[in-house]
């Protein structure tokens, strides 16, 4: 369990990190909390020659809630997300999700930026970010650009981020209505067998006025369920509609057989977590 050799760099600003990454190119990897990358390095599945540590770039560690938008620096840890009072009011689904990531020690180290940028389909934040309709800010040699979370994920570990870019910030609208992140896992610390992020708003007429659903670890990317979300809007969440919503979500996921179960089981688990998430979100709407 000894990683391969590498040279260690800890730049003190984002421009310095982007510059270093541009210079070192493919031989370098960026490290944030390290709880995905270091295990891969121990297994020699990742063997970067240079490691660019973002830990000294303290201005990437912030949570801002203003003008109806939450903006979070990439180096903000899950522990910080759980304990931030402003975020708990503006987007309580973030803490509800963060509490289901890994275990306490890992949440002190794991960052939101690493979680969303790594492209691991097992991570919980990518699906949440699609549900929240978040935007990721990427900084590269050509400057800064924004990419929607719903457009970011291409395949397992493949994202719209160029190898020379660093994800610096995440922004999403302040939440309204009810929310839920429901996760089925084998044990504490595990990735999801199936998980679902749901946001629902209730109109003055008691009907659903806004809905957003995303699913985690049920395909090689997170899945934003656009059709299912649209089906909920205007409904009273009656049994008929719910059955259609579940079918619409199951239709767009593509789980695979693995040690968390066969495809049929995962589709079943997905339908259960989805129903639980919708129930809880609606009860809070």
């Amino acid at each position: 369990m000894i990683p391969g050799n590498f040279e260690y760099h800890a730049p003190e600003s984002l421009p310095a990190a982007v510059g270093l990454l541009g210079e070192l190119g493919d031989d370098a990897r960026v490290i944030a909390g390290g709880h995905s990358l270091i295990p891969m390095m121990k297994l020699r599945l990742a063997m970067p020659e240079h490691l660019i540590d973002l830990r000294k770039i303290t201005d990437l560690d912030y949570i801002k809630v203003e003008g109806g938008t939450c903006t979070i620096g990439a180096m903000t840890t899950q522990h910080t997300l759980i304990n931030d009072a402003a975020l708990k009011t503006a987007a309580p689904i973030v803490a509800e999700t963060a509490l289901q990531v890994a275990d306490p020690q890992i949440r002190y180290q794991g960052t939101i930026g690493g979680n969303v940028a790594n492209g691991d389909p097992g991570n919980d934040f990518p699906g949440l970010m699609q549900c929240l309709d978040a935007t990721f800010t990427l900084e590269g040699p050509e400057g800064q650009r924004d990419v929607s979370a719903r457009e970011f994920y291409e395949a397992a570990y493949f994202t719209a981020r160029d190898d020379l870019e660093i994800l610096s910030a995440i922004a999403f609208p302040v939440c309204e209505g009810g929310y839920a992140y429901e996760k089925q896992k084998r044990k504490i610390g595990d990735y999801a067998t199936a998980a679902s992020a749901v946001l629902l708003s209730k109109g003055a007429d008691g009907m659903c006025s806004k809905a957003s659903i995303a699913m985690t670890n049920l395909a090689d990317t997170p899945i934003y369920c656009e059709d299912a979300s649209a089906l909920l809007v205007g409904s009273s969440l009656d049994a008929d509609t719910l059955a259609k919503v579940v079918t619409a979500c199951i239709d767009v996921i593509e789980p695979v057989d693995d040690n968390r179960g066969p495809v049929a089981f995962k589709k079943h688990a997905a339908s259960i977590v989805l129903k639980h998430a919708i129930d809880r979100a609606w009860s809070r709407a």
Partner: peptide, 26 residues
């Protein structure tokens, strides 16, 4: 040595850390 068991837990700047999943240089 795989971030699961917590036997290597130490405190680093007020955070409980699994010291098998941090390089000493960090």
């Amino acid at each position: 040595e795989t971030s699961h068991c917590g036997a290597c837990t130490v405190e680093v700047d007020g955070r409980s850390v699994k010291s098998c999943t941090m390089f000493a240089v960090q």
